[in-house]
Amino acid sequence: MFDTAMTELTFGRVWGPLIYLYGVGGIFFLAGMIISTRSKSLNIKTRNGKKWFKLLLFGYGWYLFIHTSLTLAALYLK
């Protein structure tokens, strides 16, 4: 009934998925940022465009922060 596979907390088990998520996911994110800015749909020369650009980067960092914090809590919060 429960997940009993690979309960040993190796580096690959703990950090592998996180690196994959933000690496492969990051490629899609980067592609989206490049296409949005190059097409001028996201115009970073305007104040509004800069605001959205920063928010998009913040969002990526925000989720990275959440997943990293939860991982560290799982390992070290007793």
Binding site: D3, L9, P17, Y20
Partner: peptide, 29 residues
Amino acid sequence: LPEHFKLPLAHFNQPAGFNFVGIFWQDGI
């Protein structure tokens, strides 16, 4: 709760019914 239960991401490719890489492509993408 066991330690591995508290991790926010599943095991990379085990078990078949719930693993990180499969769910990344099926749901994340």
